[in-house]
Amino acid sequence: MKVLGLGDNVVDKYVNYRTMYPGGNALNFAVFAKKLQADSAFMGVFGSDEEGQHVAAVVKELGLDNSHSRFVEGENGCARVELKDGDRVFLGSNEGGVTRTAPLTLDAEDKDYLQNFELIHMGLYSHVNHLLPELQNLPAKISYDFSDDFTEEEIQAAIQQVHFGFFSMSNASKAETKAFLKQHFTDKNEVLIVTRGGNSAFAYDGQQFYEVTPVLREPVDTMAAGDSFLTAFLINYLAGADISTAMKKGNEFAGESCMVEGSFGYGKNY
């Protein structure tokens, strides 16, 4: 199975430890997919600063295909976070750095390259929404993470162009979650999923709802828990698992992810 994370890479700077870790929704997906034995790649924009160099070095060390990424002058994506009792708290960011200021465009070689993938994952902070119309011409299915602070306008800009959509709504009731999923499901969609923090997650396939309770354990760091869940769900679902089983696999993998510092380790002092 060939899959690709398209868009954002960042460093998460933990201010209370003076340590930065590589991350970003699209990069996390690519790294987690590789851990799950998929043939995984990443395509995005790296900055020229120390932060960008660190992420690029880690990607190379992991053996992740990064052959169609761009390297430009400027600040890499960077977020400032604080860890409180294992839970990460965001303090601010440079809003994607060069991923936002030098947005990715596709040339003929990129389009040929992307023909090879079964799934392409992106998200609200990937800064590649402008590529969605071009991606419709590819054989790959499109996965999109709407995160936890989406607007209705942002949903409508993407929902009819993606096969899989993920939303984080930790304060939503079960009834509210079901109503939300039913309201936003379109003919293009295959599965939409809402995670609700430590509460049960719901999926909807246009016909029925599926509910799975997360694996709860004392976390080391909750960073990228959602990214690990959606990655494991997608890899297992595309490999033939039914929706409930794939969600359970997602929960198990997310539980494991919460035992690792940063999104997937590789911290560096700054």
Rank of each mutant, 00 (worst) to 15 (best):
F209D: 00
G226H: 03
T245D: 11
L192I: 15
A26T: 07
R217G: 12
S173E: 07
P103R: 09
K249G: 04
T195I: 09
Q161M: 15
I243Q: 05
N28H: 00
S170V: 14
H127G: 02
D65F: 10
F46Y: 15
A140M: 09
N129T: 10
P133A: 01
N66P: 05
R88H: 10
G226D: 04
M259E: 14
V72R: 06
L64K: 03
R88M: 02
L62P: 02
M20D: 08
A225G: 03
K249S: 13
D205M: 00
N16S: 11
Y204T: 00
G44R: 10
P133Y: 08
S126I: 09
P103H: 09
F32H: 13
G206K: 02
K249E: 15
G165W: 12
K34M: 08
D205G: 02
T222K: 01
E218A: 14
D87H: 15
P219T: 04
M43Q: 00
E118H: 13
F29W: 03
D149E: 13
Y204I: 01
A239Y: 08
V220W: 10
T177N: 04
T195G: 01
L62I: 09
F185Y: 13
S67A: 11
G63I: 03
S244Q: 14
F233D: 06
L181P: 00
G240P: 00
F42N: 00
S126W: 10
R217L: 14
F150D: 01
K13M: 11
R100Y: 10
G265Y: 11
F150M: 07
I142F: 09
D227T: 07
F253P: 07
K2L: 04
S244W: 04
V260Y: 05
Q207H: 14
Y17M: 12
E51G: 12
P22S: 01
M43A: 02
G24L: 05
N94A: 04
S168R: 08
L6N: 01
K268H: 10
E61G: 07
I120S: 02
K268M: 09
D87V: 15
V194A: 05
V45Q: 05
G74P: 04
Y270Q: 11
Q183A: 14
H127W: 12
S147F: 10
S93T: 08
Q207A: 14
H130T: 03
E73T: 13
H68E: 09
E109S: 15
F233A: 02
V3K: 00
G86L: 11
F150R: 02
M43C: 03
E82R: 15
Y204M: 01
G44H: 09
D145W: 04
L36N: 07
A241C: 13
Y237F: 01
S228E: 03
Q207S: 15
E95F: 12
T186Q: 04
V3W: 01
I193V: 10
